[in-house]
Write a protein that binds this DNA or RNA. Structure first.
Length: 425
DNA sequence: TCTGGGGTCCTAGGACCC
DNA sequence: TCTGGGGTCCTAGGACCC
């Protein structure tokens, strides 16, 4: 099952502000360079769409209410919806605040005939409307994620579409290739030049040809999806891979000192979010969009993960210094990736970019994290602990203490004598 | 003054290792 | 005095999603 809340941000605003009900509402960036996140159905009548510039939305529908997003309200509402879904099945995969897949296999539905499934979905939808204070959802149900997602889109808003097993390919054939997730404007254009516009066209192209046209992963994936072959599981927990902050400025920036200040502030912001999530990362990336929309990125990778604002800020400013910014900058951003879910404490006092630290000094250790739960370590000062993770010259150990199982995490240099036994094993 | 912000995934080339 | 084949990691850029 795929569930999608209708015009989510705009609907929450209309729910919370009765004066907006029945009126066109546009949620998004209201500044000079903002874009539309969500338009209410009343605003869509005037041609206002997601991703359109707010400037254009204003000219199409000047009497709409233009609102900045209130993410906390959307998050609270989303949490309530996801709770309803998790009550239905433990296998819920949120795709965003307003969308999720639910694997219905564990529901104990007595039968999977269309009528039972439809009645079941109506019930889910009624509960979603109830806990959200009146929001509507569109639901699609099918034999795979792909089909469920296509189905939920067929009858918006407040739709419910069940695609019977066996009917998948007939449903897809007449559709444009862009119904396939992963086929956006660039891929669609490449396919069009090869004479492929519908899923039916796509079905008639060999996998080899698609790989030649679009690359290995994309070509292979499209070959399968065009035949409605999709065995991707519903994945309830997904690990965060990166954390970033970026901003577009109303006028292009030309003052490097100002840019350094803005980048530093973004870095502190990223670091705070990392710490709140108990994350730290090794790769710091600076993103720049120039006045002419050219995107640049520069990154550097540390030997050990960090969640320190000043460290990230210093490195990001350094990356900014490498770039030619003639003509002005419209966007700056800072991101951290290569995340570790174990905490790096201040072992070295400061992190070192790779080219500043001689690699020969690092002890011989696997350069991927390896998990060796239960492996005992005895340390002179910290007592007894067990190895939690290791890599790049650092071993992280959880030490048992009387007061706090599972105890504090400490990082040790890999050549710490306490680790000898562990390394040999 | 056309074109956001938060993400994910893929590719290609180069460095490096055994 | 000519030059493999497997692999990983890093960087930069780009497509795509909501």
């Amino acid at each position: 099952m795929h569930l999608d809340l209708d015009a989510f941000f705009a609907s929450v605003e209309q729910r919370d502000k009765p004066s907006l009900r029945g009126r066109p509402v546009v949620v998004g960036g209201v500044g000079g360079r903002g874009v539309v996140s969500t338009a209410s159905y009343e605003a869509r009548k005037y041609g206002v769409r997601s991703a359109m510039s707010t400037r254009e939305a204003r000219s199409r529908c000047p009497h709409a209410a233009f609102l900045n997003p209130r993410f906390h309200a959307y998050r609270d509402t989303s949490v309530a919806v996801m709770a309803v879904l998790r009550d239905v099945s433990p296998l819920v995969e949120p795709l965003s605040l307003d969308e999720a897949f639910v694997d219905l296999a564990p529901t104990g539905l007595a039968s999977y005939d269309d009528d039972s499934v439809r009645a079941f979905a109506e019930e889910v939808r009624a509960r979603v409307t109830e806990v959200t204070g009146g929001l509507t959802a569109s639901i699609g149900i099918g034999t795979s994620k792909f089909i469920a997602k296509v189905a939920s889109d067929l009858d918006k808003p407040a739709g419910l579409v069940v695609v019977s097993a066996g009917g998948e390919r007939d449903l897809l054939r007449p559709m444009h290739v862009t119904v396939i997730p992963g086929v956006g404007p660039a891929t669609a254009e490449r396919l069009r030049r090869a004479g492929i516009t519908t899923v039916a066209d796509l079905e008639n192209v060999s996998e080899d040809e698609l790989v030649r046209l679009l690359g290995r992963a994309h070509g292979h994936g499209l070959h399968l999806l065009a035949r409605a072959e999709d065995d991707r599981p519903v994945v309830p927990e997904r690990e965060t891979k990166s954390v970033s902050v970026e901003g577009t400025y109303d006028t292009d920036l030309t003052d490097r000192r100002l840019m350094e200040g803005l980048v530093s502030r973004q870095a502190l912001n990223v670091a705070e979010r990392l710490r709140k999530s108990g994350l730290s990362g090794r790769t710091i990336t600076l993103k720049v969009r120039l006045h002419d929309f050219t995107n640049l990125s520069r990154s550097t990778t540390l030997n050990a993960p960090t969640d320190s604002g000043p460290t990230i800020a210093r490195l990001a400013r350094g990356l900014l210094g490498e770039l030619d910014l003639t003509g002005g900058v419209r966007l700056l951003g800072v991101g951290v990736s290569g995340l570790a879910d174990w905490i790096q404490d201040d072992l070295f006092g400061e992190e070192h970019p790779q080219d500043e630290e001689p690699v020969e000094d690092l002890p011989d250790l696997p350069d991927r994290r390896t998990w060796v739960p239960g492996m005992d370590v005895v340390h002179e000062e910290l007592g007894r602990g067990w190895v939690w993770g290791a890599g790049r010259g650092i071993v992280t150990v959880r030490f048992e203490t009387a007061e706090t199982p599972p105890g504090p995490v400490r990082s040790l240099a890999a050549d710490d004598p306490a680790l000898t036994a562990w390394k040999h094993s």
